[in-house]
Amino acid sequence: MITPVSSPAAFPSRRPGSVRLLWLLVALAALLLVCGLSVTIGTRDVAWSDILAGLGGETATIGQSVVAVRVPRTVLAVLAGAALGLSGAVMQGITRSPLADPGILGVNAGAALAVVIGMAWFGLASLGGYLWTAILGAAGAACLVYAIGSVGRGGATPLKLALGGAATSIAMSSFTVAIILPRNDIAGSVQSWQIGGVGGASYDAIAAMLPFLVVGFAVSLLSARNLNMLALGDEAAAGLGVPVALSRLAAAAGAVLLCGAITAICGPIGFVGLVVPHLCRLLVGVDHRWQLPFSALTGAVLLVLADVVGRIVARPGELDVGIVTAFVGAPVFIWIVRRRRIREL
């Protein structure tokens, strides 16, 4: 059964170019604005002169050092948001499910489990090692959940995928706990696998993650045309000459690479990949060639904004960005569920 991502009545399939361009400019301006906020707003109030000097690389006063910490944090938030937004958009395209998201589908839980296994039994301690293991774990979980979701009548329906993802997450978390419990030496690092955050950002981590992100972005963006064809249904896409299984696999590899790499560095951040593609479909239409890059851009805006909000609402402490996105994302998830007809789920 074919479940199109969006019904024609809800979203115009094409937007005029001028509208898209306008939204693109708005999104870029929003990204600049939230990045500015992210550097200037935080637990400590910093004077403007210190902010400017800190951006210039000075770390003489406390204020300037604070800015020096906020800059990599902002960079990481931008990259993570872009990667998660794009990865969610690709997953929604592949599964034709409006509810696909690395968190909901259990892919983040798979990445976390793999890293914990690596730390406990294989002496994993390097950034590169974390990245590879997390990506392997993410890929394994993605395959498992897709297999669970697509057995039986009707193929991979959103409902079955979501249930399979939830059940897989619970099983993987149990394994994670079982591995950590007898190991006091690694129990301290479990905390970062509960909620995702960008607080501990460093240029080293960003540099280690960058090659994976570049490949992930390239593969995902290049699959836009094939995703457009897949949206017509498997038979129609095959009739148009698209290698269905291969293009689905390639796009999935790109998405898994992106969310696995981010999970390795930031921990599991849910719901960004869920919310962003829906917003983008409203703004620029369903053409994946526009929707995918736009999802990356909007994802970056959302995640940086969530990080800033997390710093403001919980002063003098801060909320991890994973909490903020869950609180923004879960209501959107429910709104999507309510808006659809039963048959489409």
């Binding site: 968190g103 509960q194 991890d320 994302g329 879960a330 309510r338 789920l345």
Partner: peptide, 24 residues
Amino acid sequence: GTRLILVGIGISAMLQSVIAYMLL
């Protein structure tokens, strides 16, 4: 039933992150 299950999964995901946060 379908909608009930999916809404439940959404609420559950939100509550899980709240639990994790409070424990931390």
